[in-house]
């Protein structure tokens, strides 16, 4: 039987408690960036203007040095027969849907990362490999990622893709809002190439103003809804359409940020480590009391 008196017990318990809490309270040096700048940029996608030329798909691959077919092959419209999703080989794709206002001109919708204001991927990533930048872009850091794919589970738009076929160094692939290009003053590749400027690049505040203006001036043309203005707490990419967004296969999402509930639970459980430490103290106390009781019985 351990010859441990009560004072020793308490002392060691106290030391252990502080050691654990001290270890955990230390602020994480390597925390991910999550900036929500007032003048963050965005893109307004006007699906009533998009002609489905798919030049953006080509420009995107070109800008990211990904293997691609020659540009003129992208005029093939047979790909529209089936819904496509962005994946590890294409950060953006265009899908086509019937247009109730004019059956001659189908509605084309470009899909890519929405660059949420409160990104689920940034919140979820175990090692903080995702960052929300001042420019609005949500980017991924290859030097951190462990390939757990929790970002894919978390993303409300189902955007991040994983290179399942690679045994070594598989990467998470998604639109990076041409972070490297915008940093040096260039436009995102898709915005630059769009022949009809269905994609307008500007500060998010301006874009919302412009989008509202377009709806006000053409109430018959547009549904009164800017997708991304409030969805999951707002996104950098915004959409206008001439029909209900659910018909264009946009997900139906609330206005609360996607990581909201899980973060509040996390922060509730770990509010300055009070709950875990008090649980530790409680169990320690319980142990001590039952031990004393047993001893006195003996």
């Amino acid at each position: 039987m351990a010859k441990q008196n009560r004072r020793d017990f308490l002392k060691t318990a106290a030391v252990a408690g502080t050691a654990i809490s001290g270890l955990s309270i230390k602020p994480a040096k390597a925390a991910p960036k999550n900036i929500l700048s007032e003048d963050r940029m965005g893109v307004l996608v006007d699906t009533t203007v998009c002609i489905g030329c798919r030049n953006c798909e080509w420009a995107c691959k070109n800008a990211h040095n990904m293997p691609t077919q020659p540009q003129d092959k992208y005029s093939d419209r047979s790909v529209f027969k089936e819904m496509r999703r962005p994946d590890e080989n294409a950060f953006t794709v265009v899908n086509e849907y019937p247009n109730p206002q004019n059956s001659e001109i189908p509605t084309d919708v470009k899909v890519q990362c929405m660059h949420c204001d409160h990104p689920a991927c940034v919140s979820a990533c175990i090692v903080g490999a995702f960052s929300k930048h001042e420019s609005g872009a949500v980017t991924w850091d290859t030097t951190r990622c462990i390939g757990c794919r929790y970002c894919m589970v978390a993303c409300p738009f189902q955007v991040p893709a994983f290179q399942f076929d690679k045994a070594l160094n598989p990467q998470i692939k998604k639109c990076d809002f041409c972070y490297e290009r915008t940093k040096v003053g260039k436009l995102p590749a898709c915005v630059e190439i769009c022949p009809v400027e269905a994609l307008t690049y500007g500060s998010r505040i301006d874009l919302i103003r412009i989008a509202r203006d377009r709806i006000r001036r053409n109430p018959e043309k547009y549904v009164n809804h800017i997708f991304g203005e409030f969805e999951v707490g707002g996104t950098s990419w915004l959409y206008l359409a001439n029909q209900d967004f659910s018909k264009l296969q946009f997900p139906k999402l609330g206005e609360k940020p996607a990581p909201g509930v899980s973060e509040s639970i996390q922060h509730g459980i770990f509010a300055y480590f009070v709950p875990p430490v008090s649980l530790y103290a409680l169990l320690g106390g319980l142990m001590w009391i039952t031990k004393r009781k047993n001893e006195s019985e003996e």
């Binding site: 994480a28 040096k29 390597a30 925390a31 991910p32 919140s123 979820a124 990533c125 175990i126 090692v127 903080g128 490999a129 951190r144 990622c145 462990i146 390939g147 757990c148 794919r149 929790y150 994983f162 290179q163 399942f164 690679k166 160094n169 598989p170 990581p259 899980s262 973060e263 639970i265 996390q266 922060h267 459980i269 770990f270």
Partner: peptide, 27 residues
């Protein structure tokens, strides 16, 4: 199981030094 499921198993030690307090998975 985690080791074989993650794509970059050789980085399994990353969470030890790269912290993201808001991530449930990190915890």
């Amino acid at each position: 199981g985690v080791f074989i499921d993650i794509g970059r198993w050789y980085y399994i030690w990353h969470p030890l030094i790269m912290w993201n307090g808001s991530s449930a998975l990190f915890e």
